[in-house]
Design a binder for these strands. Structure first.
Lengths: 179, 179
DNA sequence: GTCTATACTTAGATAGAC
DNA sequence: GTCTATCTAAGTATAGAC
């Protein structure tokens, strides 16, 4: 992969995360890159192709996780979700939060959506024969390893090993039925 | 407040939530309303004014909650956050997730941002003399009453009283130090 | 209160030179 | 690989009639 192409992806990651996909123009990207808009088209077919290239990695990682989820004990599954979210924090936020990004990806029917992957993981956490209670607890645990982790990172906090273990333990407590 | 004005706000709420603020055009809104674009300008000074009108309610509700937070026991605070998030679900998602909405609001320095309110609430939940551990647990509890609740609603689940109590209990468990 | 018409700007994208 | 120049479409917004 060429150097310029990678630079474009880096810039796009940052700008998309900051203002969203729709609100970021190719002019914005070209300006930061120090080139003209036209130059971008040598590296990508369209604006949408830039987004596609960005999100394919975290999306496949999460899709694989969802496929393997049923074979993992809940604690290991939560740990895997937490680590994946940390590793791909910026792109994962984009995928999960920005409505214009979601809408662009939903237009491609061949690919699993972020919402579908989320639903699968929560369903596995809710266990076989899920009840309203176990489903609620699954959502709570999932929000802890995903949203709480991202929130800490977004606030500028470092997610060191102590914090990571604390979050994981909180998620496990949330998942287990109360006394 | 006039009938048309309220209709515009309802349509904008739906479209902004679905595709984001930046990706929704005044043409989109006018089309659904069954009028021309120009008609919108009789009711609002600008596109941004529509967004401002929409988010002012949930933003002030959450700001008040943050101001009163220190006087509430943690469980009651979590319950209040949960109920506020449920009551204002769509607008709250917009405020919390859409980057273009956030950027528009951040431009107005006189108003507290959603991120600031979030930070305040988490800080209160982390207690006096917060540690890395108590902060992590605060984030976990906060993500449970906010994100998990919204996720259940977004999936089309009904947040009945049983589910509400289950979520709240999970958040309290997440907040308390582990055994 | 709503319309048509239009001004002005920017968007994404392409053509062709270098 | 990158440029300048340009196309077309769409965006927000305004003017003025009804």
């Amino acid at each position: 992969m060429s150097d310029t192409r990678q630079k474009i992806l880096d810039i796009a990651t940052e700008l998309f995360a900051e203002r969203g996909y729709a609100a970021t123009s190719l002019s914005d990207i070209a300006e930061r890159l120090g080139t003209s808009k036209a130059a971008l088209y040598y590296h990508f077919r369209s604006k949408g192709a830039i987004l596609d290239a960005l999100v394919s990695e975290p999306l496949t990682a999460f899709t694989k996780l969802a496929a393997a989820a049923r074979d993992l004990p809940p604690r290991d599954l939560l740990a895997a979700i937490l680590d994946t979210a940390i590793a791909m924090r910026t792109l994962f936020e984009l995928l999960d939060k920005d409505p214009s990004t979601r809408k662009h990806l939903d237009a491609d029917a061949t690919r699993a959506t972020s919402a579908q992957v989320n639903a699968t993981l929560v369903a596995v956490l809710a266990g076989p024969d899920p009840t309203a209670g176990s489903t609620a607890r699954a959502h709570a645990a999932y929000a802890t390893v995903k949203n709480a982790a991202l929130a800490i990172l977004a606030q500028g906090g470092d997610l060191d090993d102590l914090t990571r273990r604390e979050l994981l333990a909180a998620a496990v407590r949330a998942l287990e039925p109360g006394a």
